[in-house]
Design a protein around this nucleic acid. Structure first.
Lengths: 250, 250
DNA sequence: CGGTTCGTTGAAACCAATCAATCCTCGTGG
DNA sequence: CCACGAGGATTGATTGGTTTCAACGAACCG
């Protein structure tokens, strides 16, 4: 079930305030990277609309047919898959400039659900048209291959995390990753708001929410961070990184 | 360090016994899926050579520059990444018809090492040429997007496994997956040889080798499988599947 | 045929899950 | 505006599954 009916009003009102890729602050992080002015205009014409997704709403759900990919303009999403027996696994958190829905290309069907963790905005990118346009714009095709490949590399990083690391190492890796991504987008790398619950962090990291809570408390006791509910302040980034590097003498 | 010096002799001897995609038994599983005769000939001309990789040799290593992707013709590979502090994570096992090196597109550099677990044979696919050809053959481009996307979906499955499942569930999932992939290639789905060690299975599944060994023994005691070293016989596939489906009443 | 790698099994230690109680926060409606 | 309820977070006690440590046996390779 998509939420298309819920958002149709905004769709209309947004049609004429479309922001073109060429003037988008995220173009360096997103698909248009490295395109010429002319090429970017062609890409612009392909982005049919911008959509607003309210906190808690599904942009799409697992099982939905896939017609478009989405680029996050603003906000924060979680992606999750559910196994046959009902277990949920959060596969990632996506923020501005990141693409959603790439898993769906394999079967023209979404395999994940994309849920907004705050009021968000995405650009809809019709996939068939992207595919066609990428044939005439080599650097667009190349960028898109890279985006797909980068997702694979990211997934391998998560496997490393889930397969080899202890609870506190996982959480440290998670915080460092978030911090870097915020920095890349011009936000503070030291102070940020967690848009997800402890349970969602736990699902992503293969841990229970109580373990996340305890690890946060421990980091705070050690003076690595300050946490107050969803606010996080990183006080000692090096200490967190040291946790990851393994004990120096091991 | 690549192993190119080791295999140069075979390369030469193989040049004239190249098997074209069009006559390859794996074409239904591999990139050429759905291409016309004419298109397949073009793809053929791109596959510069076949290479033999001996058991234990690296097809490529993490950090190597990426110029080509590889399609497994024959044999069995493991892919692994190593973290800064030296921990190894096996990210997958690849068999005939599967593509290697897709993670490397993101940076033109391999992020995994590909190691042959038995004497193997791969087709080398120069990436730049594949990219160019895929612009003129829409279904090739589409296939390649799908292959990349399928890899992402597969990785999500591994995350589910690592994040949510207990040791025996993971091993059951692993055996079922292997069984299905062998069947797809015309091999027995009930009897097969594990090409990897217990330690490598453990690394893939986020477990220690002793845990793998114990789980194998337990499955055998329960009559689900018969294991003798690397030989596996699946006696009760349904029982293994039931393990995954979660407790019936949960 | 000897050595090394791989696999199995047992006992103990440990880390995270589970169970449980309490508190906090936020959104909602009276 | 405050009270209420529900969901989210914290913390403690206990359990349990997996790792670790250890020893031994089997298989494989040169």
């Amino acid at each position: 079930m998509t939420t298309s009916s819920t958002i149709s009003i905004q769709e209309v009102s947004l049609k004429h305030l479309r922001v073109a890729c060429s003037s988008c602050s995220l173009k360096e992080l997103c698909l248009p990277l490295g395109l010429s002015g002319e090429e970017m205009t062609q890409l612009d014409s392909l982005i049919s609309q911008r959509m607003r997704i309210k906190k808690g709403e599904h942009l799409y759900s697992a099982g939905d047919p896939m017609a478009s990919l989405y680029a996050v303009r603003l906000g924060f999403f979680k992606m999750s898959v559910v196994s046959e027996d009902g277990r949920e696994q959060v596969t990632g958190f996506q923020m501005a400039g990141e693409l959603l829905g790439m898993d769906a290309i394999s079967n023209d069907t979404h395999t994940c659900s994309a849920i907004a963790l705050e009021d968000s905005e995405v650009c809809e990118i019709p996939f068939a048209e992207l595919e066609q346009l990428s044939r005439s714009i080599p650097s667009l095709q190349h960028n898109f291959y890279k985006v797909l490949s980068r997702e694979i590399v990211r997934d391998h990083g998560v496997m490393m995390l889930l397969g080899n690391m202890k609870a506190e190492e996982r959480l440290a890796a998670f915080l460092i990753n978030l911090s870097q991504r915020f920095a890349l987008r011009g936000y503070s790398s030291k102070n940020f708001i967690l848009r997800m619950t402890r349970e969602e962090i736990g699902s992503y990291l293969g841990l229970k929410l109580e373990t996340i809570s305890r690890s946060f408390s421990k980091f705070q006791d050690q003076g690595f961070i300050r946490v107050s509910n969803k606010e996080v302040e990183i006080l000692d980034l090096e200490a967190l990184k040291a946790l990851l590097a393994g004990c120096p003498e091991k």
